[in-house]
Design a protein around this nucleic acid. Structure first.
Lengths: 198, 198
DNA sequence: TCAATATACGGAGGCGTCCTCCGCTTTGTA
DNA sequence: TACAAAGCGGAGGACGCCTCCGTATATTGA
């Protein structure tokens, strides 16, 4: 699915057993803590929750972005797979719409993931760029098909659309925010439709 | 223009001269520092820049949001006035579009203002709500007119549109980001247009 | 002009977070 | 079993937040 970035580094020698174990503990703790306290949660707290020293956390995940990437790797995998499975869908625009809604749903259940995406977009570290690129590619495959079939205009790049949707999610705070974003996505897609006579 | 929220508190006795002076120094310093270092800049740094103790800063602006509100009050005033001046424009959709672009332009020149708006949206303090409400009202007056004249569907509330646009700006990082957002706004408005035959 | 007093100032201090560094421990191997 | 290599942990220095209170200053009334 994903190249093993950060998961098991292709070193000369395999990782030691305790290191592997601690890594898993950290990921598990981070998932919980990010979901509870948001993406700005204290890293010390995560290490504590994992029963591990702070130094160990920083060795496995040198930066906050590295931790984000690893924690949400499965989710990104899922979205990439979803896009791949719909590249032959009979209605490409619906496929695009569904994918964006899936992104929103996913992000809605994983408190902290949006902020993680946003923070990743800000700090242009290589690891964040990679995650971002995977999502853009997935979205791009769906969007391109709509454009090629002249169902949508070519007004926005996949990157733009992704940024727009992530941005919309970012400022939402109410518990029902997912219901607020859904119509925004519909409007955005409607805005990309070709005028009837074109 | 604006009610004097935070500017000159209607106390029994007028503010002391040194207090007034320090307040201006703080605002001036905050404007500079926010523009340079973004909205997360250190408050200690602002106090230092202003040549004032940290305690003085906190007395004048008990929370970060208070400082944001005061710093960007003029900008919000400007947007409110702009909306008021266009409520009779011949083309209401163009007026709406222009206003949103003006918002983006303003925000583009004032590094830190978007984050300030976003942070204000998150922390639902009364003072932030007030600023937010002023912008929503301004935008609402333009949007309502489009809807009343059946030029646009009322699929989104003014609040939704504002959030969408602010969100779009929020994740932009490149220097040319304003050029990237402009077409997004156009697409959004196109998505709100009624189908030709409606 | 000179107290007297309300008002405002400043910054030390307590707390929490970030991240690095390095002496000690554990694991895998010969 | 012994010895590297790999990994662990947490103390420590830096920084930012915000409060609290002793000190200073502007204003006012006599």
């Amino acid at each position: 699915m994903s190249n093993n970035e950060g998961k098991t580094k292709p070193r000369g020698r395999p990782q030691r057993a305790d290191a592997r174990r601690n890594r898993e503990r950290l990921l598990s703790a981070a998932r919980t803590v990010f979901a509870t306290n948001g993406a700005n949660a204290s890293l010390q707290g995560i290490a504590r929750e994992a029963g591990v020293g702070i130094g160990t956390l920083y060795r496995h995940f040198p930066s906050r972005e590295n931790l984000y990437t690893a924690v949400y790797e499965h989710e990104v995998d899922h979205l990439v797979a979803l896009a791949a499975s719909r590249t032959q869908a009979p209605d490409p625009v619906a496929a695009l719409r569904d994918w964006l809604q899936a992104l929103v749903s996913l992000v809605a259940t994983k408190t902290g993931m949006i902020s993680a995406l946003a923070i990743s977009a800000e700090t242009k570290s290589a690891v964040s760029q990679a995650t971002s690129a995977r999502l853009i590619d997935a979205l791009g495959s769906l969007l391109d098909r709509c454009v090629t079939q002249k169902l949508l205009r070519d007004a926005l790049s996949a990157r733009d659309v992704l940024h727009a949707v992530v941005g919309m999610c970012l400022i939402q705070t109410e518990p029902d925010w997912q219901q607020r974003v859904a119509p925004m996505i519909d409007v955005l897609i409607d805005g990309l439709r070709r005028p009837a006579g074109d």
